[in-house]
Amino acid sequence: MQLRVTFVAAARSTPLLAERFEDDRPLDQAGWDEVQRVVQDLIPLAAAELRYCSPTPRSRATGDALGYTPLVQLALRDCDMGRWRGLTLGEAMAREPEAVDAWLADPHATPHGGESLHEFIARVGGWLDTRPVEDGGRIVAVAEPSVVRAALVYALKAPPSTYWNIDVRPLSTTVVTGRAGRWNLRFDGAPTQPSRA
């Protein structure tokens, strides 16, 4: 049986440049407003047989606001950033510029004392590969944008450096289909009519 896993990126709780590593702050008013604007479009995903979310407050709140009542999955947590937890990228760069450069350049590097990008991608991919096929073909998972990026790199069997070239917007949806070890990225946009010359 082929699975269909739809990732929903959690609503944002801060402006992009103020995002912190392993941010555990709840949704702010702007985040709640974003969810209310898209709820009608995303609520049909609640029909999925299995509904999950990452353990962050904003992922749980996003899933609940969309009516998913998701089950928290620790494997969908953000990358363990060790001593950089709670810092913005700019703050980490100001404190340890060489360490940040090493982390950005080498997917196996752990200068922060946490998890490497390679380990993070493998953990998220391991979660994806172990979804129970017998429980149904449709799954929805609300997760941090970083987790969605990791899932895409894994599903596409892309080099880890690809992670830095994927932009996942809050409340966007990304679909992968397949089964363990054989995933495909799926685009479900509306068909366009050919233009007439």
Rank of each mutant, 00 (worst) to 15 (best):
W32G: 02
D78W: 05
A10N: 07
Q36H: 14
M1W: 04
V140I: 02
V124S: 07
C53E: 05
D135I: 01
A102F: 02
M1A: 14
A180E: 14
W103P: 02
R196Q: 11
G181H: 09
R179T: 15
W127A: 07
P97I: 02
R37S: 14
W32S: 09
V8P: 10
G114Y: 10
A94D: 13
A122H: 13
S54N: 09
A180Q: 14
A46N: 04
E134T: 12
V39W: 04
L104A: 06
L89H: 07
G63H: 07
W84P: 09
S161G: 06
I139Y: 09
W32C: 00
R179P: 00
E22N: 13
L185Q: 10
D101H: 12
V142N: 05
T162S: 15
Q40G: 14
A151I: 04
A102V: 02
T88Y: 04
C79H: 05
L71A: 14
A65P: 09
M1R: 13
V133C: 11
A150P: 12
C79V: 13
V153D: 06
A99H: 11
E91V: 08
P170Y: 03
D23G: 09
R123A: 04
Q2I: 11
E144G: 00
R138C: 06
G137Q: 14
R85Y: 08
L185R: 13
R169S: 14
S172M: 11
V176M: 09
T62E: 10
L128P: 14
D23S: 00
A158L: 13
G136V: 03
D188R: 11
E134Q: 14
W84Q: 08
K157L: 04
D64V: 12
L27H: 05
W84D: 04
L152I: 10
A48W: 06
A158F: 02
L17V: 11
P194D: 02
W84C: 03
S54E: 01
W127G: 12
E22L: 01
V133M: 12
T56C: 05
G90R: 12
W103Y: 12
V142H: 00
E115Y: 01
L156A: 15
M93I: 04
A94L: 05
G113C: 10
D188A: 10
A48F: 06
P15C: 01
A92E: 03
W103R: 09
A47C: 05
I166M: 06
N165P: 03
L76T: 01
G126D: 13
P160H: 01
A75N: 11
G181W: 10
R186N: 08
T110P: 03
D106G: 03
D24A: 12
G125F: 06
L117I: 09
Y52S: 13
D41R: 15
V153C: 07
I166F: 02
Q29R: 14
E49S: 13
N165D: 14
P70K: 01
A197M: 07
A155K: 00
S172V: 09
S13G: 15
R169K: 15
A65K: 09
A46Q: 15
L185S: 03
A150Y: 05
G63A: 10
D41H: 12
Q40D: 15
A61R: 08
Q29M: 08
G31H: 00
Y68E: 03
I121L: 09
D23I: 01
V175C: 08
Y163R: 01
